[in-house]
């Protein structure tokens, strides 16, 4: 039973975007701060720090979760994924990221990392998720710029591509029509 003292720093080990990682933190350190300040990974954004905005969302053991409501000492041994893990190699975009770009699903980009991580984790769990389900997933995030319609269009298109379907098929056409209606 690890018992960690309040003032002291403690080493926490976990898997981060597929590679072993470790960071030294106090028990009170939030996962957001451990990632940003401890590991220098500033892709995970911090908005409200009380679970409401979704900007800090990362995948913990495959499910999307708020990093600002997670203690860094609590993720010992966990499998974490952050937005830094989405691109297949430097200078290239992942499928979801590319769809976001095509559909103008971001403007200022503050909310984007969190939304990408929610969608990435969710689509791995439920590759066949449709519009209603993805609307709920995106509903866990605040975006003040886009009005959400292009985010959903991008999500539906990416989901189709990830399923190996023709991205100009019915699911995506529905998305594009919605975008036109929105424009």
């Amino acid at each position: 039973m690890p018992q960690l003292d309040a003032g002291a720093r403690h080493r926490v080990r976990f898997t981060l975007n597929g590679a072993p990682a470790e960071v030294e933190v106090e028990p009170r350190t939030l996962l957001t701060d451990a990632l940003r300040h401890g590991l220098g990974l500033t892709g995970t954004h911090v908005g409200c720090e009380h679970g409401v905005c979704g900007a800090c969302t990362v995948a913990i053991d495959g499910v999307p979760a708020r990093a600002c409501l997670t203690l860094a000492v609590g993720v010992e041994g966990c499998d974490l994924r952050t937005v830094e893990g989405l691109a297949p190699e430097p200078g290239r975009l992942g499928v979801l990221q590319a769809a976001f770009r095509r559909h103008h699903a971001l403007q200022c980009g503050f909310c984007t990392a969190g939304i990408l991580m929610s969608l990435d984790a969710y689509l791995r769990l439920r590759p066949r998720a449709g519009r209603a389900e993805l609307t709920e997933v995106v509903g866990g995030h605040l975006c003040r710029c886009t009005g959400y319609a292009p985010i959903l269009a991008a999500a539906l298109e990416a989901a189709a591509i990830l399923r190996g379907e023709d991205p100009s098929g019915p699911a995506t056409r529905e998305a594009t029509d919605a975008e036109k209606a929105h424009a």
Binding site: A6, P27, R28
Partner: peptide, 17 residues
């Protein structure tokens, strides 16, 4: 917004908790 300092105990069993 950051929590005030606290100690942390990860219980492995009901008895420990």
């Amino acid at each position: 917004m950051k929590p005030a300092p606290f100690g942390y105990l990860r219980a492995d069993s009901l008895d420990q908790a």
